[in-house]
């Protein structure tokens, strides 16, 4: 078996808030394999968002070892972290984070911009990806012309367009009604079956229950 997508060993993260040190993570170890479907659950303040940022290479641990895609993030500068995110991680956010004045197709193509892919190829790959999430008929729509479920599917297409090994979804159904939330989860599960690791951050037990395994966090530690 190949190397796990993400390996965290005894990772901590401490924030310095104007001289007050706040420990958000207090020693977390976790492995995400290439085919994993993990749900991270916990109340707000439990450290699950912080863990999510670390797993997504948006942030670096204060101590401990974190390897993403086989690379130790402690050795990487901001530009290398950006490249790592671009190549390895796909993000799906609760509030979609789509560029408002940009069409679905160009939103999806955005990560490829930073990979230096030409415009024509970007647009072709973005269209293909939108087709895959069932939005082939929405290529030139702007976010405000689409429903919440459609916007989240655009965001998933954007996360997938670079061919990442891990999809990190932060409350992906949090802003959706149950029917569309169900559709989005179904899509994530299909993708997982196709070989992308999915890490879901949620406080919804029902959503978490569908994952292959659950990681419960409390006070900066994994409790089960």
């Amino acid at each position: 078996m190949t190397e796990p997508a993400i390996v965290a060993v005894d990772v901590t993260r401490t924030y310095d808030l104007d001289g007050v040190f706040v420990s958000a993570l207090r020693g977390v170890s976790l492995t995400v394999s290439a085919t994993d479907y993990v749900a991270i659950v916990g109340t707000s303040g439990s450290g699950k968002s912080t863990l999510m940022h670390l797993l997504g290479a948006l942030d670096r641990p204060s101590s401990g070892t974190l390897r993403i895609g086989g690379r130790d993030v402690a050795t990487l500068g901001p530009a290398e972290m950006a490249l790592l995110r671009n190549e390895t991680i796909g993000f799906v956010f609760q509030s979609f984070h789509l560029l408002a004045r940009t069409t679905a197709r160009d939103n999806v193509a955005l990560p490829l911009v930073y990979r230096g892919v030409g415009r024509r190829e970007r647009r072709a790959r973005a269209a293909e990806m939108l087709e895959r999430v069932g939005l082939g008929h929405r290529l030139d729509h702007r976010p405000n012309q689409m429903s919440g479920g459609e916007q989240q599917r655009v965001a998933i297409a954007r996360a997938l367009v670079t061919g990442p090994s891990v999809l990190l979804a932060d409350e992906p159904t949090g802003n959706l009604d149950s029917t569309t939330g169900e559709q989005v989860l179904g899509l994530l599960e299909t993708l997982n079956a196709d070989g992308v690791a999915v890490v879901l951050v949620t406080h919804d037990r029902e959503v978490a229950g569908r994952a292959h395994r659950q990681i419960v966090m409390r006070d900066g530690l994994i409790v089960s």
Binding site: G56, P78, A82, L83, R85, F91, H97, L99, Y114, T162
Partner: peptide
Amino acid sequence: TKEIGLRKAVGARPRD
């Protein structure tokens, strides 16, 4: 700021 954050998340370097 949000747009910058998103761009960075999908792989924009500080320089970009």
